[in-house]
Design a protein around this nucleic acid. Structure first.
Length: 412
RNA sequence: AGAGAGGUGUCCGAGUGGCUUAAGGAGCACGCUUGGAAAGCGUGUGUGGGGCAACUCACCGAGGGUUCGAAUCCCUUCCUCUCUGCCA
């Protein structure tokens, strides 16, 4: 959620920034007008309430002293009706404002490049060089015929589900453990969280109210399957005030993730790239605003070094405004090399949401006397399924088998 | 799932209709004290709004209601604890 005061006071600059994210100025103007109207209506309501409070106190005193209170009572009853009317208006405006405010995306940072979509993202650097094969490298579903069972995944559930067997099942588990250990050594504390969360939690991180169609909902309950560990882990601190000394809070968490992929019909239908259920090891950090840039770099470094330790060639991309997610002020994607596809594919996405989620989720820290909003950051380190198929493709041999990276051998 | 008890500020905790616009304690901040620390003493300190200075409004799990006036009474709902049942 954006700071309403910022919209009131720096309207033009907010609009200009949101233009990068393709948000119409009308929405912001609407938000501004409602917020001002609310302020005006409150200015009517509050003196009425003050009058009611003061006179009611008097009422008590007079009653005790045995004075005549009939006239006062009539006056207060009349005032009460005015309050009811004014209060209704305020409540309606507040709801309108909150609904609108919750569906406006975060402001991009100033250094986020302009651009329409993923084609305008900027490559920051490449790490390691892709392997060279003396045969035509296969795609992962050709390599893993006996290890990833797509047909039976569909039988059990539906399309975009799969079953891991044998070496793949073991590799998946090895990767989860390796990633958690790697992140822990970098100072991130492991947490294990629920996969089913409530509406408030998903509102806190920004998935609701706008993106309900992307989520699997539990029938008959107001509960949803998590689309990423970012949701429960960030919300661990929802409605809390953190002592300054406890910051930064650095966490890592393995969870399964569940996504409807509502807008991805026909994309990546083959193979394991885009599934309704996938494993991911996530990093989540809560910092003071002044330290979030440093933490952002640290998280990128962690995920990138993790890929390097697995011997996987990858590149860093700075997302342009048009490709930036709803809650992100800035995002760096890591893309890993897939020899079978002969291209880089996303394997990690690290975002700084600044105080956008903190404002929604009311995550604050005590700064001397005042409470201030924290900054929240999240990033994959890494998407496990995609890492597994990247290993299959990058470590494949001419006979159709594949090796595993040296660092994983003790985990297998 | 059934029965009972309960949800109050960063934390603990008092408070069953009007000097509670929430007692007291812990913690935290500042100051005094000290060679330094601890202890002790003093002061400040709930959250979120209002051009936030005085002042003022809302908030005692959430939502509604009764009343001139609600943390306090009523209804709905969520959650926690204890016991019973079920289960890994």
């Amino acid at each position: 959620m954006l700071d309403i005061k910022l919209i009131q006071n720096e309207f033009d600059s907010v609009c200009e920034k949101l233009r990068k994210k393709k948000v119409s100025e009308d929405i912001i103007e609407n938000l501004r007008l409602i917020s001002l109207e609310l302020k005006a209506k409150k200015a009517i309501l509050e003196p009425l309430q003050a009058e009611q409070n003061a006179s009611s106190k008097l009422f008590g005193l007079w009653a005790k002293e045995g004075k005549d209170i009939n006239e006062l009572k009539a006056k207060l009853s009349a005032n009460k009706e005015k309050i009811t009317v004014a209060n209704k208006l305020v409540k309606e405006l507040e709801e309108k404002l909150s609904n609108l405010a919750l569906s406006v995306p975060n402001l991009p940072d100033n250094d986020v490049p302009n651009g329409a979509d993923e084609n305008d993202n900027i490559e920051i650097k490449k790490v390691l060089t892709p392997p060279v094969f003396d045969f035509i490298p296969k795609e992962h579903w050709e390599i893993a015929e006996n290890q990833i069972d797509f047909e039976r995944g569909v039988k059990l559930s539906k399309s975009r589900f799969s079953v891991l067997k044998n070496k793949a099942a073991k590799l998946e588990r090895a990767l989860i453990n390796y990633m958690l250990d790697f992140n822990t050594k970098r100072g991130f504390n492991e947490v294990c969280v629920p996969y089913i969360v409530n509406r408030e939690t998903l509102t806190g991180t920004g998935q609701l109210p706008k993106f309900e169609d992307d989520l699997f909902k539990i029938e008959g309950e107001d509960l949803f399957l998590i689309p990423t560990a970012e949701v429960p882990v960030t919300n661990l601190f929802r409605d809390e005030i953190i002592l300054e000394a406890e910051l930064p809070i650095m966490m890592t968490s393995y969870t399964a993730c569940f996504r409807k992929e509502a807008g991805s019909a026909g994309r990546d239908t083959r193979g394991m790239i885009r599934q309704h259920q996938f494993d991911k090891v996530e990093l989540v950090c809560i910092t003071k605003p002044s330290e979030s840039d440093k933490m952002f770099d640290k998280m990128i470094e962690c995920a990138s070094d993790l890929l390097s330790s697995l011997g996987l060639a990858h590149r860093h991309l700075m997302l342009c405004g048009g490709d930036l997610g709803f809650g992100a002020a800035k995002t760096v994607d890591l893309e890993v090399w897939f020899p079978g596809q002969n291209r880089y594919r996303e394997i990690s996405s690290i975002s700084n949401t600044r105080d956008f989620q903190a404002r929604r989720a009311k995550i604050r820290y005590k700064d001397q006397k005042k409470n201030k909003l924290v900054n929240t950051l999240n990033g994959s380190s890494l998407a496990v399924g995609r890492t597994m198929i990247a290993i299959m493709e990058n470590y494949q041999k001419a006979d159709g088998s594949f090796d595993v990276p040296e660092v994983l051998k003790s985990y297998m």
